[in-house]
Design a protein around this nucleic acid. Structure first.
Length: 270
DNA sequence: CATCATGTTATAAT
DNA sequence: CATTATAACATGAT
């Protein structure tokens, strides 16, 4: 479920829990979301600590804690953060639960694809500081995009847009949306698109990220019907632009939705 | 019962 | 070595 904007939305759910001491911690220590982690150490460090900050970067979240501790959370495919009342009783998939006087901060993830990180250091942890620039930030330049695409001479654009080392936060629906709005066929080799197409792609990546953050990231409301978003999983599935039947097929290991009329190889259609 | 799911990563193949 | 493709992970919904 969570891509850039959904992650931002979930991160905000814990905001009321900032600056209040954690009185008790509940962990499903056997869960895969704690892989590579010393869970007893984590529990010890969290108990009595206070969440001081909450930030996102792409699909990554980082919570700054008192005592120089950092809690990192990745939601995987089915993870979510939510706030519950103080008397909350953790359920089956609530892997990390932070009890406070007024609230309970809950991380749940039925499929266990998510991941918890924990670091004890003065500054932000290394993995956080070395994340690539977000696709809607000024550091994500056209030149950077062009250079990355040029190195993927054979990979289909759809697969390339999912590569987090260049597009942190972009996931399956955003990649489809970006390609559809840019009139680019998802199978087009990334290294073969023209400079004009790169420029258009850059512009749409930025605008789609920003609008998604604005719409979904604030209150989980739907993007406009003029986007592909609301049509791609429908059974009727017609392109909202030209009304052709949308196609669905696996590309880059993921189900991809696109319009065979709007998105062609070769020349841009506008 | 079979198929699919808004993600990542280890491993294999090119 | 750099790039590309695939399977695996664990569970729930249809």
């Amino acid at each position: 479920m969570p891509e850039l904007a959904e992650v931002a939305y979930f991160c905000k759910q814990w905001k009321p829990g900032l600056n209040q001491p954690i009185r008790a911690v509940h962990c499903h220590s056997h869960s895969r979301v704690f892989r590579g982690l010393d869970v007893p150490l984590l529990q010890d460090a969290l108990k009595g600590a206070t969440l001081r900050s909450a930030r996102t970067h792409g699909k990554q979240m980082l919570f700054g804690l008192s005592r120089g501790n950092w809690l990192g959370i990745h939601l995987g495919m089915t993870g979510q953060l939510r706030l519950e009342p103080a008397d909350f009783v953790p359920g089956k998939h609530d892997h990390l639960v932070l009890f406070q006087a007024r609230h309970t901060c809950v991380f749940s993830d039925p499929r266990h694809f998510g991941r918890i990180r924990f670091d004890q250091c003065k500054q932000e942890p290394d993995w956080w500081r070395s994340l690539p620039p977000e696709p809607h930030s000024p550091a994500f330049t056209i030149d950077r995009l062009a250079a990355f695409l040029q190195r993927r001479t054979k990979a289909p654009l759809k697969a390339v847009l999912l590569m987090q080392e260049c597009f942190p936060g972009i996931g399956n629906w955003m990649a489809d949306e970006i390609l559809w709005q840019t009139h680019l066929h998802p199978l087009l080799p990334a290294g073969k698109i023209t400079p004009a197409q790169v420029t258009l792609l850059h512009k749409n990546i930025s605008s789609i990220c920003r609008l998604a953050l604005d719409i979904i990231g604030t209150d989980w409301s739907d993007p406009p019907d003029s986007w592909l978003f609301n049509h791609r999983w429908n059974n009727g599935r017609n392109c909202p632009r030209c009304y052709s039947q949308l196609l669905r097929r696996p590309i880059g290991g993921r189900t991809t939705c696109f319009c065979p009329t709007c998105q062609r190889f070769g020349r841009p259609t506008r």
